[in-house]
Simulated scan of single mutants.
Amino acid sequence: MKHYDYIFAGAGLSALMAVYEIAVSGKFSDKSILLLDADSKKTNDRTWCFWEKPNGKFDAIVSKKWKIAWFAHENFRRILDLNPYQYKMICGLDFYNFVFVEISLHPYIHFINQKVNSILEKNDLVFIETASETFSCNKLFNSIYDPKSALSQQQFPVLQQHFIGWKIKTVQKIFNPELPTFMDFSIPQNGNTRFMYVLPTSENEALLEYTLFSKDLLPEKEYENAIEDYIQKLGISTYEIIEKERGQIPMTSYQFWKKNTKNILNIGSAGGWTKASTGYTFKNTIKKSKALIEFSQHENDFTKFHKTNKFWFYDLLLLDILSDKNHLGSSIFSSMFKSGNPALIFKFLDEETSLYEDLKVILKCPKRLFISALINRIFKNQPVKTIK
Rank of each mutant, 00 (worst) to 15 (best):
Leu207Cys: 03
Leu207Ser: 00
Leu207Pro: 01
Leu207Ala: 05
Glu209Lys: 09
Glu209Trp: 09
Glu209Phe: 07
Tyr210Lys: 14
Thr211Asn: 09
Thr211Asp: 03
Thr211Pro: 04
Leu212Thr: 07
Phe213Cys: 04
Ser214Asn: 02
Ser214Met: 03
Ser214Glu: 00
Lys215Leu: 05
Asp216Tyr: 02
Leu218Ala: 03
Pro219Ile: 10
Pro219Val: 14
Lys221Gln: 14
Lys221Val: 08
Glu222Leu: 09
Glu222Val: 09
Tyr223Ala: 05
Tyr223Asn: 05
Tyr223Gly: 00
Glu224Asp: 08
Glu224Met: 12
Asn225Glu: 15
Asn225Gly: 10
Asn225Tyr: 11
Asn225His: 15
Ala226Val: 00
Ala226Phe: 03
Ala226Pro: 00
Ala226Asn: 07
Ile227Lys: 07
Ile227Leu: 15
Glu228Gln: 11
Asp229Arg: 11
Ile231Tyr: 12
Ile231Ser: 11
Gln232Lys: 14
Gln232Val: 04
Gln232Ser: 08
Gln232Ile: 05
Lys233Trp: 04
Lys233Phe: 07
Lys233Ser: 01
Leu234Met: 13
Leu234His: 02
Leu234Glu: 08
Leu234Tyr: 04
Leu234Lys: 08
Leu234Cys: 08
Ser237Arg: 14
Ser237Tyr: 10
Ser237Ile: 05
Thr238Val: 10
Thr238Tyr: 10
Thr238Ser: 15
Tyr239Cys: 04
Glu240Gly: 03
Ile241Lys: 14
Ile241Gly: 12
Ile241His: 07
Ile242Gly: 01
Ile242Leu: 13
Ile242Tyr: 03
Ile242Cys: 03
Ile242Glu: 03
Glu243Cys: 08
Glu243Asn: 08
Lys244Val: 04
Lys244Pro: 00
Glu245Met: 02
Glu245Asp: 11
Glu245His: 02
